[in-house]
Amino acid sequence: MSVRALVVDPSVSESVRPADVPDPVAGPDQVVLEVHHASLNHGDLNDARTGRVPPGAVLGSDAAGVVVQAAADGTGPAVGTRVVALTAGAFAERTTVGVDGLAPVPESVDLVTAAALPVAGLAALRSLRAAGLTSRKRVLVTGASGGVGRFAVQLAAHAGAHVIASVGSAGRGEGLAKAGAAEVLIGLADLDRPVDIVIDNVGGPQLVEAWSMLAPGGSLQSVGWTSGQPATFPPYSTIGPAKSLTSFVNEGEFAADLAILVQLVAEGALRTEIGWHGSWENVAEAGKALRGRQVNGKAVLDIDTHGRRHAAEDVVVEPR
């Protein structure tokens, strides 16, 4: 059997196209997930364009759907459970997920919302944790209009921090004050006091500028590099009172932190803003909008499987 998926193809627009690929085969500690929605990240586009995901391989990281085959070793959720997952090859009708890479989604949270959480939500949550977030700290979030940025603003504000959101234009700042930003700046020119934490999604010259505004003992977490520009530090700019610039990547087990994010959504403490939502057949359109900074928040793809059977027809549930 085969499934429909979005695979890497450097010869087409956004380097991704639909194709049939073999039906996924789960390992003993993996479930098979029927994917209903997936979100598109800058990292996915970069993976396709740079060759980090090879031609012909299924793209994607964020998925939400329903378990149609439980893990053979007895761990993880049962068949029929709604889950959100971070897994390679998410852009497919069905994919495999390790039980340490998913979390159940309660009925009060729709799967479109859940699909937007994994990469961006985990990056925001974990980078703030790594930076030593506590209440009353001054937190600068650059590229705050994107997926990671909007989650970071909300999570830092929820923790009681003074949050400064930096965006590229007034329009990109819409909704950030409501999300918890005490200040919304265009660029960093009006940043007049040092900050304790920087969550940087932009890179390039703005990373250098943000570094110069980091207080002694502060932490700059380099989460993204949407500018695509080099960062050139002036001589002696890294000499002085101790502060840190730390590279960041999502790695390890994700289940516990995904559960935290889902719970915050269920409680109304975390809101997902979806700036583009449509069929996965329009992935090139979504990619262009994302790269062109026309999407505030997340871009979510509906995995339209016109011949999708009901889960009850796809699986056999063995009696206990």
Rank of each mutant, 00 (worst) to 15 (best):
G51C: 01
S212P: 05
N46W: 11
L290R: 10
L125S: 04
A312Q: 15
E93M: 01
P205V: 02
A231M: 10
P24Q: 02
L155I: 12
A179H: 00
A120E: 10
I303S: 07
Y236W: 14
G180K: 02
A242G: 14
F248Y: 02
A266R: 13
I197G: 01
H36R: 07
D44N: 11
A284Y: 03
R136Q: 14
T246D: 09
K288D: 14
E251M: 12
A70K: 11
R320Q: 14
D62T: 03
P22S: 00
L117A: 06
R193Q: 08
L264C: 09
D20I: 15
F91C: 11
A269I: 09
P106V: 06
E273N: 15
Y236M: 15
G147C: 01
H37F: 14
H158D: 15
S13M: 10
A64I: 06
N250D: 15
T246P: 04
P24C: 00
V223R: 06
G168L: 08
K243P: 05
P241W: 05
P234G: 09
A182S: 07
A165P: 05
P319I: 06
A181M: 07
A157T: 06
V184H: 08
D100W: 09
V35K: 01
L111E: 00
G147K: 02
S169T: 14
V3Y: 10
N201G: 13
L220R: 04
G297F: 04
A177D: 13
N250Y: 07
V202P: 00
V3K: 05
P106H: 00
P194N: 03
H36W: 06
H162Y: 14
V16L: 05
P235F: 11
A242W: 01
Q154N: 09
L155S: 04
S219I: 11
D190P: 13
G168V: 06
W225F: 12
G76K: 05
W280R: 03
G217W: 02
A177S: 15
Q263D: 15
P234V: 05
G217A: 06
G218S: 00
I239T: 15
D257N: 05
P235E: 14
G268S: 08
D192S: 12
D44S: 02
I260A: 13
H37C: 12
R193T: 13
G56C: 03
H306K: 14
P216Y: 04
T272F: 05
E107N: 08
A312F: 14
T75D: 12
S244Q: 13
P55W: 00
A70M: 05
G278R: 00
E34R: 08
A19S: 09
L176K: 04
G143A: 09
G171P: 08
D196L: 09
A179R: 02
A114T: 10
V67F: 08
Q154Y: 03
K243N: 11
T134I: 10
A57Q: 09
G275N: 06
P28Y: 05
S244M: 11
L140P: 04
V97H: 00
E267A: 14
G252E: 13
K288T: 15
A71E: 11
V317A: 04
L155T: 05
E251D: 13
A165G: 02
L33F: 03
L6V: 12
D62P: 12
A161E: 01
G132C: 10
T305R: 10
V21W: 08
